[in-house]
């Protein structure tokens, strides 16, 4: 009886909430007429003053770069929290969980693919301001390369110290570039480098620098997550 009531209540609520969202009419120009939405300013300024051809990048890294700094911190914190929960005393790594060992086709195939995946990852975040993709996507691609290696080789190991150094340096670069902008232009994360020519690799001022830092950071952090979780077996904490 109680459950039926709860379901009825949720259904009624859901009906009205869904109705509200249908009324918005996604996909049509639905901003209230007469207002100047910020998206128009973003699109105009992306090409005009930032000289960046990927509008998503210019919004993520410049207009709303502060949010991105926050999101990068969220990821950093998630890794920190995971590390603190799965931490093993005396620095003894838990045993790797291996369901079945991989065949020689998988091992040699992944050895072959690994450099290509890493290269693609670097390409995606270095060209973040020119083509689709960017720091987050590129970082994830790099981490997926490491995931492949970790799955193919039972004893493949990544240095934890190296990961944390890369992670820290990338984070410092992001915050440091922001503070440099603060010293040069007066506001945090302000562009202080020449913006260059549209569609060139060296253009967009600080945007590529930040995105490369984000790429390194995301790659290192996700690799760290995969590595920690894979080695979770062993000493039980409960």
């Amino acid at each position: 009886m109680k459950k039926v009531l709860v379901i009825l209540l949720l259904a009624t609520l859901g009906y009205y909430v869904a109705g509200t969202y249908f009324d918005i009419g996604f996909g049509q120009p639905h901003f209230i007429k007469g207002l100047l939405p910020v998206k128009d300013i973003y699109l105009a300024q992306t090409v005009k003053s930032l000289k960046v051809s990927n509008a998503v990048t210019s919004i993520v890294v410049n207009f709303r770069g502060f949010d991105t700094l926050g999101e990068v911190t969220v990821l950093f914190l998630a890794v920190t929290a995971l590390g603190s929960i799965l931490y093993k005393k005396m620095n003894v790594l838990g045993e790797r969980s291996v369901l079945f060992s991989s065949s020689s086709i998988v091992t040699s195939g992944s050895k072959l693919l690994f450099p290509a995946i890493i290269l693609l990852g670097f390409y995606v975040f270095i060209h973040g301001h020119l083509s689709p993709g960017g720091g987050f996507q590129g970082g994830v691609i790099i981490a997926s390369g490491f995931l492949l290696m970790l799955l193919a080789y039972e004893n493949y190991s990544v240095s934890h110290t190296a990961l944390s150094v890369v992670e820290s340096l990338a984070g410092i670069t992001f915050a440091g570039v922001g503070l440099l902008g603060f010293m040069h232009g007066g506001t945090f994360l302000q562009n202080f480098l020449p913006t260059g020519v549209l569609n060139h690799l060296f253009s967009g001022g600080i945007i590529p620098i930040i995105y490369i830092a984000v790429g390194f950071k995301v790659g290192a952090e996700l690799t760290g997550v995969i590595y920690t979780v894979l080695h979770e077996k062993g000493e039980s904490n409960g």
Binding site: L69, S164, G171, I172
Partner: peptide, 21 residues
């Protein structure tokens, strides 16, 4: 300025693992 309330701790958070070494 107010932005330092965010920027300085974030910078420090990224620095602390290095300093700890």
């Amino acid at each position: 300025t107010p932005v330092l309330f965010i920027a300085i701790p974030l910078l420090a958070a990224f620095l602390i693992p290095l300093l700890g070494m």
